[in-house]
């Protein structure tokens, strides 16, 4: 019997290596795998490359992982937040590497990895400093920049519902990067608000089919904070 549910955070985090690339879902405070981020802090892996839209808020969650010196490099589109104190301090002191990627290119680079596409061409960023040093190629008279796929060693995901095969649904704007990061992670770990029986999810409504999921932990985390 396939059962992707794990009982403990330690099981969920087992085997994450130093030097891993970790994809972290969420946009704003919605759809963030907060419990798994805390689990990763506890687990201890270091020298990480983190891919997330923002570098964290305040001194909790992702910002705490950064603060503890565990992240070598962050790949994000928006190195700001309502309180980016930790990232800004580390960055100013030269203690973290930053790769800024246009948000759509970031999403597509992970989608590509999940779909077995090593690189693609896009007009986004052409003629700007984010295309400097990258291959430019013309198609039908328009220049495009080549961008490479981002594969995650690990993806941390927050879902709304999950069954034991790892089929997932999301809630409203909590979907965001989660389904694509689930595809792009070699080891995809999910925290889910709700657990449902196999067969209970309408096949037409499953957003992430279980093939993209390795481990699921039930974390009834509750609603995102309203700021």
């Amino acid at each position: 019997m396939i059962n992707k549910f794990v009982r403990t955070m330690a099981e969920a985090m087992e085997g994450i290596q130093d030097g891993s690339t970790v994809l972290i879902g969420g946009f704003g405070s919605v759809g963030q795998p907060n419990a798994l981020i805390d689990g990763l802090i506890e687990q201890g892996a270091k020298d990480l490359t983190v891919v997330a839209n923002n570098p964290g808020v305040g001194r909790v969650g992702l910002a705490r992982l950064l603060d503890l010196g565990r992240v070598r490099k962050i790949i994000c589109s928006f190195p700001r937040s309502s309180d980016p104190i930790v990232f800004e301090t580390l960055y100013r002191e030269g203690r973290i590497e930053l790769e800024i990627v246009p948000q759509g290119t970031m999403a597509e680079r992970m989608r590509a990895a999940g779909a077995g596409i090593p690189a693609f061409y896009t007009p986004t960023g052409v003629g700007t400093k984010l295309a400097e040093g990258k291959e430019i190629r013309e198609f039908n008279g328009r220049p495009y920049v080549m961008e490479t796929a981002i594969q995650g060693d690990v993806a941390l995901i927050e879902a709304w519902e999950a069954d034991r095969w790892g089929n997932l649904t999301y809630r409203a704007s909590g979907r965001n990067f989660n389904p694509i990061m689930a595809m792009a992670g070699k080891l995809t770990i999910v925290q889910t608000q709700h657990v449902v029986e196999l067969g209970q999810l309408d096949p037409e409504k499953i957003v992430t089919p279980g093939i993209f999921v390795d481990r699921v932990l039930h974390v009834p985390y509750g609603d995102p904070m309203i700021s």
Partner: peptide
């Protein structure tokens, strides 16, 4: 500025080009 090494691009380049 060219010296702002950590500017926030978000989706602006995607929107402008697409």
């Amino acid at each position: 500025s060219e010296n702002d090494t950590a500017p926030a691009v978000g989706g602006a380049m995607d929107l402008a080009a697409g």
